[in-house]
Design a binder for these strands. Structure first.
Lengths: 191, 191
DNA sequence: ACCCAATGTTAGTAACAGCTAACATTATAG
DNA sequence: CTATAATGTTAGCTGTTACTAACATTGGGT
C-alpha cells in the first residue's frame, strides 16, 4: 500500500472513507492521515475536497461488459441465469464502495446517478430481451420486463443485504443463497 | 403540520433530515428551520444534537407483531407468503426513514443495530419454522433456513431497490414485482 | 555536488458548527 | 389582569473545517 504513487494513495483513502461515512462526515485531515500523506499534499493534487470526491468516483467506477456476456449464453435457463447472476454480483462487488458512496451522499454529483444507472439499465434491457426470446421459444410465459426487474432487484437485494446488514441479519452465505434462488426462479418460471 | 407540539415538530424534522443526509451532514440550525422553530428551542428540549438523534430513533422505530401474523396463517403457500410479504413490506415501509438513517450513519448508536436487527431475526425464525413445517407436510423440500433467508433478502432487496434506486433503475411498480415474485417462488419450491 | 520537483511543517484565515447566556416576546391559565 | 411557562432573538464563545501561504526538507537524476 506504500509504494503506490501519492495520488493513488489519496484516492484510495478517499474511497474508503467516503464510502464509510459520506462526504460531509469525512475531513480532509482524515483522508490525508489515512493516505499517510500531508494534508497540504492532498490539496496540491486535488485542489479541493469536492474535486477529490469526483476524481475518486471517476477512478473507481467499474463498467462491466454485459454485451459479451449475453452473446455467450446457451439458451439453457439455469446455466444462463447462473452466469448472469455471478457476473452481476461480481459487478456489484467491484463497485461496492462506490455504491456505498452513493447511499451515503445525496446528489453531490449529477453525473454520479447517471453513471451508476447505466449498467443496471443496460443489463435490464438485455435480460428483458433474453426473457422475451425464451418466451418465443415456449420455455417461459411470464412478462419479460417484470421478470427482468424481479431478477435484478432480487440480486441487488441479496447483495445489499449481505453487504450492509451482515452484522444484523442472516448467517447463511451469499453463494448458497444465490444458487438456491436461481434454482427456484428457474423452476418457478418454466412452463 | 403546525398544530403539533414543539417536540414532535422537532423530532419529525430530525427524522427527515437525518435520513436524507446523515447525522454529521445535518446542522441544528437546519433542523430548527425545517421544524419551524428557533434553534434555541431545540436545545432547550433535547439538550444536544446526539440526544436528539436518539430520541428521534426511539420515537419512530416501529416494531411489528409478527407472532400474531403467523398464528393467522392457513398453510396455503401462496396465500400465506403473500400475507407475510405484504406485512414485511409494510414494516419496512413504516421504518423506511429509520432504515435510511441506519444506512447513512455509522455506529452512532450501539442499540441502534440491536433494535433494527430484532424484527428481521424474529421474522426469519418464524419463517424458517413455517418452511420446516411445510417440509414435514411434504409440500416443499428445500432447506428451510436457506429459503427463509432467500425470501427475506429478496423482499428487502425489492424494497430497498424501489426506495433508493427508483430514480435510476426500474419503472415497474413494486406491487406487481412482489406478487410476481411470490407466484414464482411458490411454484419454484413446491414439490 | 547540485538542481528541482515533490513532499512536509507550521501558522494562519474565514466560515461555520454546536452550544450557552441573557433578555424580549408571546401565550395561556387562574 | 397578572403570573408563569414556553418560545424567540441576539450576541457570542469555542472548536473545527476547508483551504492558503510561506518556508523547510527530502531525494532522485544529471
Amino acid at each position: 500500500m506504500c509504494n503506490l504513487n501519492t495520488e493513488d494513495k489519496i484516492l484510495n483513502a478517499s474511497l474508503v472513507l467516503f464510502s464509510q461515512k459520506g462526504f460531509n462526515a469525512v475531513t480532509t485531515k482524515e483522508i490525508a492521515k489515512e493516505a499517510g500523506v500531508s494534508e497540504m499534499t492532498l490539496f496540491r493534487h486535488f485542489e479541493n475536497k469536492h474535486n477529490l470526491f469526483e476524481k475518486a468516483f471517476d477512478k473507481f467506477v467499474f463498467s462491466p461488459k454485459f454485451l459479451a456476456l449475453f452473446e455467450s449464453l446457451e439458451w439453457d435457463l439455469e446455466r444462463d441465469l447462473t452466469k448472469i447472476c455471478s457476473s452481476y454480483q461480481d459487478t456489484l462487488y467491484k463497485n461496492q464502495k462506490i455504491i456505498l458512496m452513493h447511499f451515503k451522499n445525496e446528489e453531490l454529483n449529477p453525473q454520479f446517478d447517471a453513471t451508476l444507472s447505466k449498467f443496471p439499465n443496460e443489463l435490464r434491457n438485455l435480460l428483458s430481451d433474453y426473457f422475451a426470446e425464451m418466451g418465443n421459444r415456449g420455455i417461459i410465459q411470464e412478462n419479460p420486463k417484470v421478470l427482468a426487474n424481479n431478477f435484478l432487484a432480487t440480486n441487488f437485494g441479496l447483495f445489499i443485504t449481505f453487504l450492509v446488514m451482515n452484522n444484523l441479519t442472516f448467517e447463511t452465505d451469499i453463494v448458497a443463497c444465490i444458487s438456491s434462488y436461481v434454482k427456484i426462479f428457474v423452476k418457478g418460471i418454466t412452463c
